[in-house]
Amino acid sequence: MKKTSTKLLSVLAAGVIMASAFAGCGGNSSSTASGDNSSNAGSSNTSAFDTSKSLSVITREQGSGTRDAFVELTGVLVKDGDTKKDTTRTDAVTVNGTEAVITNVKGNDAAIGYISLGSLNDSVKALKVEDVDATAENVKSGEYKISRPFNIAYKGDLSGVAKDFVDYILSSDGQAVISKEGYVSVSENAAYAGTKPEGKITVAGSSSVSPVMEKLIEAYKQINTKAEIELQTSDSSAGMQSALEGTCDIGMASRELKDTETALTSTTIAKDGIAVIVNTNNTTENLTMDQVKAIYTGEAKVWSDITK
């Protein structure tokens, strides 16, 4: 009887130990799951977007070629005969340059802006427009509707380094640089076979064209080490004015030339999309052209106005 009792106690003790062990495992498993759920909840909270927030609309400065093209293509620019009126909402935050737009959108989850497609990075999110992704391929095919030309312009005839540099840009070598940087090439010319002259020129204008122009200058100077090219970044209107005044050899514009600039000779060097961007926390994925217009004219006040 004593042996049986001792054996029974040993079995019971072992059972208690095993139950405790299972309880411990269950506790750890529950804790881990709880931790995962907490983490997931946190992630969900981070990605959740409050559509009752007021739209924080970011636009470019007057004179920006990107703004000129954007308002015209989206219908924010109202035309009445020869009269044109930019109806961008009065409470829009106006900033100078592409990077300033990205910075503002990145730092505000209720913000929306627009930038050159070639300047897009992972710090912000590009929206589809009319169910079409903002990509170079869709710009080239014409499916993505918010696109514009990158133009260079000059007064009179080009010579020396200026002419040779333009020949390089339009050659297959220069167009390869443009494609590599995420823009759409426009020329099917042969490879560069220039004279590589010595000299200095100045290229000035659009902050949207400037990034790809910088890459073109770098590539050209590797071929023609005798050339010196100064790049001055401002906006399209300033670039065209500098070309007209002769204070730069080549002006840059991220739009078509205006009637007041027709004394210049213009050449399209690339095509570019204008990406409509939002904060990465914003759950919006697609807008129609009418919704983009409503946002920028002030018809839409809060995000729920366009996410219904």
Rank of each mutant, 00 (worst) to 15 (best):
residue 1 M to E: 14
residue 13 A to H: 13
residue 21 A to F: 15
residue 23 A to N: 15
residue 24 G to R: 12
residue 25 C to T: 13
residue 26 G to M: 14
residue 26 G to S: 14
residue 26 G to K: 13
residue 26 G to N: 14
residue 28 N to M: 15
residue 29 S to K: 14
residue 31 S to V: 13
residue 33 A to H: 12
residue 38 S to C: 12
residue 40 N to V: 11
residue 41 A to N: 15
residue 43 S to F: 13
residue 44 S to P: 09
residue 44 S to H: 12
residue 51 T to K: 13
residue 54 S to A: 15
residue 55 L to H: 06
residue 57 V to R: 04
residue 58 I to H: 10
residue 61 E to Q: 15
residue 61 E to Y: 03
residue 63 G to N: 09
residue 65 G to W: 00
residue 66 T to P: 01
residue 67 R to C: 02
residue 79 K to C: 10
residue 83 T to D: 14
residue 84 K to C: 11
residue 84 K to Y: 15
residue 87 T to Y: 03
residue 90 T to K: 15
residue 92 A to M: 08
residue 92 A to N: 06
residue 93 V to K: 14
residue 98 T to E: 15
residue 100 A to D: 09
residue 101 V to D: 01
residue 102 I to Y: 05
residue 102 I to M: 03
residue 103 T to S: 13
residue 104 N to V: 12
residue 105 V to F: 05
residue 107 G to K: 07
residue 110 A to I: 12
residue 110 A to V: 12
residue 111 A to K: 08
residue 115 I to S: 09
residue 115 I to G: 04
residue 116 S to Q: 09
residue 117 L to H: 00
residue 118 G to H: 01
residue 123 S to C: 03
residue 125 K to M: 00
residue 127 L to W: 05
residue 129 V to R: 02
residue 132 V to M: 07
residue 135 T to N: 08
residue 137 E to T: 11
residue 137 E to Y: 08
residue 138 N to D: 06
residue 143 E to H: 00
residue 147 S to Y: 08
residue 147 S to N: 15
residue 150 F to E: 06
residue 151 N to K: 11
residue 151 N to I: 08
residue 161 V to D: 03
residue 161 V to S: 04
residue 164 D to A: 05
residue 164 D to T: 03
residue 171 S to T: 02
residue 173 D to I: 01
residue 176 A to H: 03
residue 185 S to L: 04
residue 185 S to G: 06
residue 189 N to V: 03
residue 189 N to R: 09
residue 189 N to G: 04
residue 190 A to D: 14
residue 192 Y to T: 03
residue 194 G to T: 10
residue 195 T to P: 11
residue 197 P to Y: 07
residue 197 P to I: 06
residue 200 K to W: 05
residue 201 I to V: 07
residue 203 V to K: 04
residue 210 S to F: 07
residue 211 P to D: 05
residue 211 P to Y: 00
residue 215 K to E: 07
residue 216 L to T: 03
residue 221 K to M: 13
residue 225 T to K: 14
residue 226 K to F: 01
residue 227 A to P: 10
residue 228 E to F: 00
residue 230 E to K: 07
residue 232 Q to P: 03
residue 233 T to N: 05
residue 235 D to T: 05
residue 236 S to H: 02
residue 244 L to F: 06
residue 244 L to R: 09
residue 244 L to K: 15
residue 247 T to E: 02
residue 251 G to M: 03
residue 252 M to Q: 01
residue 257 L to G: 05
residue 257 L to R: 02
residue 261 E to R: 02
residue 261 E to Q: 12
residue 265 T to R: 01
residue 267 T to A: 01
residue 269 I to E: 00
residue 271 K to T: 02
residue 272 D to T: 07
residue 273 G to Q: 07
residue 274 I to Y: 04
residue 276 V to K: 06
residue 276 V to P: 08
residue 278 V to W: 05
residue 280 T to D: 11
residue 281 N to C: 12
residue 284 T to C: 10
residue 285 E to Y: 12
residue 285 E to R: 12
residue 286 N to C: 09
residue 290 D to N: 02
residue 291 Q to F: 03
residue 291 Q to A: 11
residue 293 K to G: 06
residue 295 I to S: 05
residue 296 Y to A: 07
residue 297 T to I: 11
residue 300 A to F: 08
residue 303 W to R: 00
